[in-house]
Amino acid sequence: MTSIPQIVVNDLQYHYPDGTIALKGVSLNIYRGEIVGIMGKNGAGKSTLIKTFNGLLKPTFGTVYVENNNISDTFTSYLSKKVGIVFQNPELQLFANTVEDEIKFSLKNLNLSKEAIDEKISETLKIFDLEKYRNRSPFNLSGGEKKRLAIASIMCRDPEIIVFDEPTIGQDASGITFIKQIIKENATSGKTVVIVTHDIEFTIDVIPRIILMADGLVVADGPTHKILSHDTILEMTSLTSPQLVKFSKSLTELGEKVPEDIFLVKQMVQYLSEFFKNESRKRKGGKP
């Protein structure tokens, strides 16, 4: 089942009408149930790439297949049922009188019965902890709540693939924790999650595989902690190492034997616990 990729991008080029070439030949595969990060400088082509996934932009050359649909000859109205994109700024999409109507609008073109729509609305409001705001205006929500509503208005459509564009900008710790949880739940239920982000600390925590882009091309594709410790690649893409990747690298340089894949807080705590226990044992043992 996993052998056939869900998204197949083959030698994709995209030229904007003003002549700018945003993508210069991108090829990649994304499999069902994966969490994939897309990173790189502003202007590297990340946003352009994800906009092809639901057909908002059509390839100038090359092909994009989503679940065997060639997006070049498929309507966005159809693709948007399979691929949901959550854009960075929730204010670009909130318009309805109430939170409930906002969700209802997303369900409009899915040919659902009235009962099914009502059920879906209640279910979604519950998942996103927005029940108490059901009849409130979306404009009176806080920044974090608006973000939740924007995600809800995409997720209620049950897309197979969910794309997040910079989900952590402007979010505090509780907002980020919520987004992490949503992403993990989706992946475990078999959905595919694609995330465009600059946030390296968030990336190292939830995204196992990243694709790095620079200047309209893919420059690296692989396990997150390996790529985010590779200095030349990082420099090329204007990224930096996450703190704990840097930390274990420095520890190794000090001559400590740090296992290669320590990059989470939990792992580092465990490692250092052992380290401090050993040190105090040594000190006790060393005393005459």
Binding site: D172, I176, V269, F276
Partner: peptide
């Protein structure tokens, strides 16, 4: 207060809570 605590701070804080540091 719900800030994004840097990972190094979190690591050493946990060690502190565990009385190892």
């Amino acid at each position: 207060i719900g800030l994004n605590i840097p990972k190094c701070v979190s690591v050493f804080q946990t060690l502190k809570n565990d009385k190892l540091y």
